[in-house]
């Protein structure tokens, strides 16, 4: 295959994912309603109870709504990544996954195309959410909306690769829903998405320790710092390394000669 062919393959996979997204308006609305409920309802309620001290990257005291916006961006990507992996299980059950897997491109490349496509879809959702938040009064510096692009890419790949990896362990759609509950909610709530780590430590040292080991914490912090035109080296490095590890494991899982699919397929 020539280099141009790889581009056409990527374009095709991304176009299909975007077309499917456009056709599934309810999915788009559901993806927005969830973080908006947090922003408009929960944050308004918690505002008085949870004051946020002056912490990096913020230069002054901030409202709770301002604090949770990067976490809600991460939430959109987390749910989208899992939804995309859920569709992989569905596609595998329904057979359309096979069309992808019998393509004459290396399987690792096809999976990366799929992950990139799903990440781009999540980025569309994120920007619509950020626009609504901006109108609502949660406003970051304008250049911050450009700086978060790489952070969104890393987070999208990270949660997408995790979902992809989980999908290799699951044979039936029904089982995946259960796994999602055991992954999505702990990953989101045991992170710095809703409360700063120092606040969590005040409440429970154990939860703080768990949140400190949760890679989603570092994805959220990468987004938070980027949105305010800063670069958090530690958070970004941990997020990137986690992404690479999960991606490698997911590709291994989808290798018919080595991964989980091979073990399920037979011997």
């Amino acid at each position: 295959m020539r280099g141009g062919a790889y581009w056409h393959c990527l374009r095709g996979v991304v176009t299909r994912e975007l077309l499917r997204f456009v056709h599934q308006r309810s999915r788009f609305i559901a993806a927005l309603v969830r973080p908006l409920v947090w922003l408009f309802v929960f944050a308004a309620g918690f505002r008085m109870a949870l004051g946020v001290a002056m912490i990096e990257p913020y230069e002054t005291y901030i409202r709770y709504e301002v604090y949770i916006v990067p976490g809600l961006v991460g939430m959109i990507q987390l749910f989208n990544g899992m939804q995309s992996s859920l569709s992989m299980v569905y596609d595998r059950e329904m057979g359309s996954m096979r069309v992808l897997l019998v393509s004459p491109f290396p399987r690792w490349y096809l999976l990366i195309c799929k992950l990139l496509a799903s990440t781009l879809v999540s980025m569309v959702q994120v920007y619509v959410f950020l626009l609504i938040a901006y109108v609502y009064g949660v406003q970051a510096p304008l250049t911050g909306y450009v700086y978060i692009l790489p952070a969104l890419l890393v987070t999208g790949f990270m949660v997408g690769a995790l979902g992809l990896l989980l999908s290799t362990f699951v044979r039936q759609l029904e089982n995946f829903a259960g796994i999602m509950n055991f992954v999505i909610f702990p990953m989101f709530f045991l992170s710095s998405a809703l409360y700063p780590l120092w606040r969590i430590r005040e409440g429970s040292y154990l939860v703080y320790q768990i949140a400190s080991f949760n890679p989603f914490t570092y994805a959220v912090e990468t987004i938070r710092f980027a949105l305010y035109e800063q670069f958090n080296m530690t958070a970004s490095t941990i997020a990137i390394v986690t992404t690479l590890v999960l991606l490698t494991m997911a590709i291994w899982g989808y290798d018919p000669s080595r991964g989980m699919l091979a073990r399920k397929g037979g011997e």
């Binding site: 393959c9 176009t15 057979g95 359309s96 491109f105």
Partner: peptide
Amino acid sequence: TLDLDLTVKQNLLYHGALHG
């Protein structure tokens, strides 16, 4: 294995892309 929500053209162009 066709995508029911896409048109015939979109399905075939997708397959073409998967073959470069």
